[in-house]
């Protein structure tokens, strides 16, 4: 009897893993260079939210769920990211 073939999510998840590793390297490099300021914060935050969405969508499999589940996770990330950005800007002022 033939074994079922490899599920189709493996290949995209492998590419996502590579992207996550690369983006983590970018975040570390920014930190190691001691870069700061509003624009750097927004870049790091954008990378973080992109990585989070990749994990939620592909690894956790939420991209194939109903709008409600995706909205809960997306809303969570937007609120957390928004809080971090607003608090950072408060610190500048």
């Amino acid at each position: 009897m033939n074994k079922p073939s490899q599920p189709r999510f493996v290949r995209p998840c492998t590419l996502i893993w590579l992207a996550l590793v690369t983006l983590t390297g970018v975040t570390y490099t920014i930190g190691d260079a001691g870069l700061g300021g509003r624009n750097v914060m927004l870049l790091v935050l954008a990378i973080t939210l992109l990585k989070s969405q990749m994990i939620a969508g592909y690894f956790m499999g939420l991209r194939k769920t109903s709008l409600l589940w995706r909205a809960i996770m997306g809303g969570y990330l937007i609120v957390v990211g928004g809080m971090i950005a607003i608090a950072y800007l408060m610190g500048i002022n």
Partner: peptide, 22 residues
């Protein structure tokens, strides 16, 4: 698996927030 991904997701936010953003 879902629980473990959550643990990963939290560190993905925690690392830049605490170690990088300045």
């Amino acid at each position: 698996a879902s629980y473990w991904h959550m643990v990963d997701l939290v560190w993905v936010i925690l690392f830049p927030l605490v170690y990088v953003i300045r």
